[in-house]
Amino acid sequence: MNALLPIERRIRLAAALVLLGIAIEAVSLRILHPLSFVVFAAFGALAIGAGIVVYLLALLRGVEPGKGA
């Protein structure tokens, strides 16, 4: 099994975070309750947002001169 490049590790982390956010969204949409909206808007948004930020940072670091991608 090939070792992962740093950008690939970051993309994997980003995918994990966004997947968590999507799972929170899916579960919250199954429950009709004000708290499910709060969980979706707070934790779901946080996980998806964090994943996107990690992904964008991975892309930025990947194109910096002297850093492998």
Binding site: I11, V18, E25, F40, G44, A45, I52, Y55
Partner: peptide
Amino acid sequence: GILLLPSLAFAVG
């Protein structure tokens, strides 16, 4: 998978 679809899924959700 990481940027476009989750943003859309969040907005629709």
